[in-house]
């Protein structure tokens, strides 16, 4: 089974890559590990005319400690290599722990950090073969004008199923985004839009080149629920962070992933813990407050009621883990 026709470009430098990306315009697609892009091309979910490989670009491979105690990671670093990195394991253990929970070792041997950050949103309708999809009308992602998940909706409700964005938002990471002649910094939380079709705040000629994680001394944890934990995408995942020790907790951050089109930063549950600490009673009140911030939860992959319950339980587990740290 051959891949759909496309031109495969392997630029020798980042500058050449950015030029190729600009020339390709709408019909261009960046690929690194291939575990998401090649799979979606097989499903004929998108048919790029030009596929631009960044896998071997030297500029995107470095893991560079910064003077302020942070780190700058090249977007084409393989996920597995990050889990083996002593500096990352030592200073941001929740980050490497999140990556270890991501897919299987086989996929982590190929997939890259940038690829996971820019992972396409997923849905039970679109993530099937073209022949299977032909049995129903097309949706927003497949040249149609409806969403099979919420029929009355005017936008795509596919889910952001990636693991690394959830923990990187909690860690306050910043992305370096480049295009020909320009570079900008974007907090990773602002990368994600609540629209499954155009879920990334990236122009077609822009490329995520680096991820900068600031120094973090706070307690951090990442918990994930999946059907088979060794390989599957999450049903829900929570990254939690706070300072202090034991039940005393300040500056609480709670991020929920894989339940919606963009990761959700949970505000009220975090505020409850900040004002009352990590007591059993406060944790229960924080869990009660989760449901109100989920927005429209879809029946995608699992029932909405189940997902709300998963979100609640994951927040409880994450907060309990923080208390023990």
């Amino acid at each position: 089974m051959l891949l759909p026709a496309h031109a495969y470009v392997r630029p020798g430098s980042l500058d050449d890559c950015l030029i190729a990306l600009r020339e390709a315009g709408d019909a261009g697609q960046i690929v690194a590990g291939g575990t998401d892009v090649i799979f979606n091309m097989r499903l004929k979910l998108f048919r790029p005319e030009t596929v631009i490989s960044v896998r071997k670009l030297r500029e995107l491979q470095d893991i560079e400690p910064l003077p302020d105690g942070g780190v700058r990671i090249g977007a084409a670093c393989r996920l597995h290599d990050l889990t083996e990195h002593p500096l990352l394991n030592g200073r941001w253990p929740a980050f490497t722990d999140a990556i270890r929970q991501l897919a299987s070792r086989h996929v982590r041997n190929m997939g890259t950090l940038g690829g996971n950050i820019c992972l396409k949103t997923r849905c039970w309708y679109t993530n099937n073969s073209a022949q299977w999809r032909a049995g129903r009308a097309g949706c927003f992602k497949t040249d149609g004008q409806l969403c099979h998940v919420i029929k009355s909706s005017d936008k795509c409700h596919a889910i952001n199923n990636a693991d690394t964005p959830v923990i990187l938002i909690a860690l306050g990471a910043t992305l370096t985004i480049r295009k020909v002649g320009a570079e900008r910094q974007l907090p990773i939380v602002d990368l994600y839009h609540d629209d499954g079709l155009h879920n990334l705040a990236l122009d077609v000629d822009e490329l995520v080149t680096h991820v900068t994680i600031p120094p973090v001394d706070d307690r951090t944890v990442y918990v994930k629920q999946a059907a088979r934990k060794g390989i599957d995408f999450a049903i829900g995942s929570v990254a939690a962070r706070c300072n202090g020790a034991g039940e005393w907790a300040g500056k609480v951050t709670l991020v929920l992933g894989s339940v919606s089109t963009a990761p959700i930063v949970l505000k009220e549950p975090a505020a409850i813990i900040e004002s009352s600490g990590l007591t059993d009673e406060a944790i229960e009140r924080a869990c009660d407050a989760v449901r109100d911030e989920l927005g429209e939860v879809t029946n995608l992959y699992s029932r909405a009621g189940y997902k709300k319950q998963v979100a609640r339980v994951l927040v409880r587990r994450a907060l309990q883990r923080l208390r023990e740290m």
């Binding site: 495969y8 590990g33 490989s53 190929m110």
Partner: peptide
């Protein structure tokens, strides 16, 4: 297995790579 002896999925990687 790749040159480092790691497991990789040959179905998800373009041959040109």
């Amino acid at each position: 297995n790749n040159a480092q002896g790691e497991a990789v999925l040959s179905c998800l990687t373009p041959a040109l790579e």
